[in-house]
């Protein structure tokens, strides 16, 4: 089987800081990581390759330094990595991103063999849209299985895949045909520690780097800012509520403080008293 995994280099959101005066993101020194949701996609791809043979190709669109992220991801044991990087991709929204990645995956298919499964993470931690996976599926004409919590079986001969998918109030069990695109749910597996051999191989590996032209993209108007129907008009931090919080003075004991706080709560939301009394009666 040939399995392609889309990954993204993202800023470590735990370390993003907003400038207190200008309300802009302070990017300097924010470390980048592999989008954590993508690790579940990588692990699932490696498991399928280990079970059925074949290879795993990682692909990412990003700035030139995303090569480091791809190399780190290779150390888990993937077979090759492709970085799509070009100034034409700058400012891509989800529609333009799905166009670029779908084009690259088509080129990967022509170069290394048509993929049986394309994996993505559930979403990224910076954009949080969960739109790029479905976008790639639609553009490549692949069947789409999102929020997959478990791959029950893959039959490469019969070209069938059965999965469990997280739906509202339960798990949907689905069967579809290969090739397809799968977005993996978090917690669906645990990423392996790569072997020493994989780490050494990754350190020496040549990450394949493609410009738009090298990825076979001719329609540059579908890329980057020009290929993005959405426009960001304004970035801002929310203001404080007009009315400041009413601050309760701590009492001399925790009991007094608690009583003062409960008095304030039920003075503001008196209708809740009956509900809480009912809850207490049922305890």
């Amino acid at each position: 089987m040939h399995i392609v995994v889309c990954i993204k280099q993202v800023p470590d959101s735990a370390q993003i800081r907003v400038h207190p005066v200008t309300n802009t993101i302070m990017r300097q020194g924010v470390p980048t990581i592999i989008n954590p949701y993508d690790l579940f996609a990588i692990e699932e791809a490696l498991r399928l390759r280990d079970a059925h043979g074949g290879s795993v190709t990682l692909v990412s669109m990003g700035p030139p330094n995303a090569e480091d992220t791809l190399r780190k991801a290779l150390a888990f044991g993937a077979d090759r990595a492709v970085l799509l990087t070009d100034r034409y991709f700058a400012g891509s929204d989800t529609l333009a991103t799905s166009f670029a990645l779908a084009s690259a995956i088509a080129k990967i298919g022509a170069t290394y063999g048509a993929p049986d499964i394309v994996f993505t993470g559930k979403q990224t931690i910076d954009g949080d849209t969960a739109q790029v996976g479905p976008g790639i599926a639609k553009r490549l004409g692949l069947l789409q299985l999102t929020y997959v919590s478990r791959i029950a079986s893959v039959d490469p001969e019969a070209r069938l895949i059965e999965v469990e998918r997280r739906a509202e109030g339960g798990i949907q069990q689905l069967r579809t045909q290969l090739p397809c695109l799968v977005t993996m749910l978090e917690g669906s597996n645990t990423i392996r520690r790569g072997t020493m051999a994989d780490a050494l191989k990754a350190a020496r590996a040549q990450v394949v780097i493609w410009t738009a032209a090298e990825a076979g993209i001719e329609e540059l108007t579908k890329c980057g800012l020009r290929g993005s129907p959405t426009v960001v008009k304004r970035v801002f931090a929310p203001g404080s509520r007009a009315e400041k919080a009413r601050m309760i003075d701590p009492g001399t004991s925790a009991r007094d403080t608690a009583d003062a706080l409960l008095d304030a709560i039920f003075a503001a939301q008196g209708a809740l008293e009956a509900d809480v009394a009912a809850a207490q009666a049922s305890l």
């Binding site: 404080s240 919080a245 601050m247 701590p250 925790a254 403080t257 409960l262 809480v276 009394a277 207490q280």
Partner: peptide, 27 residues
Amino acid sequence: FDFAHIGIVADAVRLLPALTEGVTRRF
């Protein structure tokens, strides 16, 4: 505290059990 309606500067680990007890006492 910029968007809360009621605020209290206190250690929640001490205040939470007191609140639970206060609710029980009340109701």
